[in-house]
């Protein structure tokens, strides 16, 4: 049963399928905002499948093992996080409840992997991208960590399951002043974690031509795209878990969960379509000078019980 949970539902397979559907959902919203029709529902799957049929090119300057392995490391951690979150949502009391710190570290790994892979490619343009990703990474982690731990401190637990349990008893974290502020900060950090406009700085197509994924092609690119799709599934789920009480799969809970999920992805998609890209120093200033104090405020508010 546990193996089934990890591998099929709500683990690996489920995460991949939902992730790819979410990619389509996001693209469809984008298209609608831009007065277009948008791709058909199977587009995400088709893209991945096609990329696997393609030749894989490896630049001659690359450190081959690092270059090839990096996407797999990122992908596997994204998969792991997705499975852990899913299982934790289903069984908050299960023994391996997925500690919040472990989860936070694991969520870092995809970024790190991609940074590593792109700098292993030996292409300086990719390296500009990875330097930007790195800077972005350390800017959004600070408010994100503050929010995460202020919630952990509020629930007085360090496990995802504990936070879900806490919310089942005391109501979702979102419905309080600190929760709303925290949610906004976490949502913007999520946007950056996903690398979407206005934080697609490392991938900026108009500046450094896909930057960090510039040198990836064929199957490796497919793995990276899968990873992105998984993150697009995981991070909203993570937000739901820590702010909205996790997924509740009993009766109407399913519907409620689906609506929450779709709304969060919708917000992310709308943000990405109504903003220009920031410059890296502007993004860092935003995170450190505006969102970090906000996150601290949220932490203080949650400490005093608002």
């Amino acid at each position: 049963m546990i193996i089934f949970n990890y591998l099929v539902f709500p683990g690996f397979l489920f995460a991949i399928i939902i992730g790819l559907l979410t990619v389509w959902y996001d693209r469809k919203i984008t298209a609608r905002v831009q007065w277009r029709v948008g791709p058909p529902w199977y587009q995400g799957f088709v893209d991945i499948l096609k990329l696997f049929t393609k030749e894989t090119l490896i630049p001659s300057t690359a450190k081959k093992t690092g270059f090839v392995l990096a996407p797999f490391v990122g992908f596997s951690t994204a998969l792991l996080v997705a499975a852990m979150l899913g299982v934790a949502g289903l069984y908050p009391k299960m023994s391996f409840t997925g500690d919040i710190i472990v989860l936070w570290y694991l969520l870092m790994v995809p970024s790190i992997a991609i940074i590593f892979g792109s700098s292993a490619s030996g292409n300086p343009i990719s390296q500009v991208g990875s330097s930007r990703e790195m800077k972005l990474f350390m800017s959004y982690e600070l408010p994100f960590v503050i929010i995460l731990f202020s919630i952990a401190a509020k629930a007085h637990t360090l496990s995802i399951g504990g936070i879900i349990e806490y919310q089942r008893v005391n109501g979702a974290n979102l419905w309080s002043l600190s929760g709303i502020i925290g949610f906004i900060v976490a949502l913007i950090s999520t946007q950056a974690k996903l690398g979407l406009v206005p934080f697609d700085i490392p991938e900026a197509e108009g500046e450094i031509a896909s930057g960090i994924i510039l040198e990836y092609s064929g199957s490796l690119l497919a793995i990276l795209k899968l990873m992105k799709a998984l993150l697009l599934y995981t991070l909203p789920l993570f937000l739901i878990t820590i702010f909205l009480g996790g997924m509740n799969l009993q009766g109407l809970g399913i519907l409620w969960f689906i609506i929450e999920y779709l709304v969060i992805v919708f917000i992310i998609s709308i943000i990405r379509n109504t903003n220009p890209r920031l410059r890296i120093d502007q993004a860092m200033n935003l995170f450190w000078a505006i969102l970090t104090p906000l996150a601290t405020l949220s932490g203080i508010l949650s400490y005093v019980g608002l």
């Binding site: 948008g38 791709p39 092609s217």
Partner: peptide
């Protein structure tokens, strides 16, 4: 994009 055609930023893709 209706037909799945996408303009990409690198010939690698």
């Amino acid at each position: 994009e209706r037909f799945g055609i996408l303009l990409v930023g690198s010939p690698r893709h």
